[in-house]
């Protein structure tokens, strides 16, 4: 990360707002938000979010950088895209939330590091980097045991019945996880992606 986004010193200082408008993919369209509430109303996870997307956008305008980047709204999006297709101003709401989540990680906001979603994502990443596949069992185990062995066992037991149900209907294979062929190619692709992202980030003001 070459530069951090600016931190406003007073309400509605537009330093952060403009940075977001210019540096976040779809941020320019966020400017068109008219606070109608369709996004938050369409969101299946809205009740689990502290602010929801609409208020998040207003908070960005109000320069509430810390509150925005600490918000669980960024992490609870499940990418259903209801908000995107319904927004009367064509604001790519879900994409913007993901971008903001990435920003929060980069800038080291605590909820970003400790959020369940982030932990899950780590498992997800580890799985495909290691096996070239996203194996649900590996992801789950990685996710469950991140906070220690005891916590892992507890979680495992909590999901026991669901797991057995999956096995019963054949949705959870019992064989060993297997890797893809040509993992080297995958590594090259991942490296290229990382390079692109680094370039992209460096290009930002």
């Amino acid at each position: 990360m070459t530069t951090m986004s600016p931190t406003p010193t007073r309400p509605y200082d537009l330093g952060f707002t403009r940075w977001v408008y210019q540096n976040i993919d779809g941020g320019d369209r966020m400017a068109l938000c008219m606070q109608c509430g369709v996004c938050s109303g369409s969101c299946p996870l809205s009740t689990t979010m502290d602010n929801g997307p609409r208020k998040t956008f207003m908070m960005i305008r109000a320069g509430m950088k810390d509150a925005v980047l600490k918000s669980d709204t960024l992490w609870n999006c499940v990418s259903c895209y209801n908000c995107v297709v319904r927004c009367p101003r064509h604001v790519p709401v879900a994409y913007i939330l993901h971008e903001l989540a990435t920003l929060a990680v980069r800038e080291g906001y605590a909820p970003a590091r400790t959020s369940e979603t982030n932990k899950f994502v780590k498992g997800f990443t580890w799985s495909f980097e290691t096996f070239g596949r996203t194996d649900e069992r590996i992801i789950s185990l990685f996710y469950y045991f991140q906070d220690g062995f005891v916590a892992g066992i507890k979680k495992l037991l909590a999901f026991k019945s669901i797991a057995f149900a999956f096995v019963k209907v054949g949705r959870l294979p019992l064989g060993l996880p297997h890797r893809i062929k040509n993992r080297g190619e995958l590594k090259k692709m991942l490296a290229a992606a990382a390079a692109i992202e680094a370039r992209h980030t460096a290009g930002r003001k």
């Binding site: 509605y12 537009l14 707002t17 320019d28 400017a31 068109l32």
Partner: peptide, 9 residues
Amino acid sequence: QRSGVIFIK
């Protein structure tokens, strides 16, 4: 809005 004017209800 596009030009960056901020509307506050």
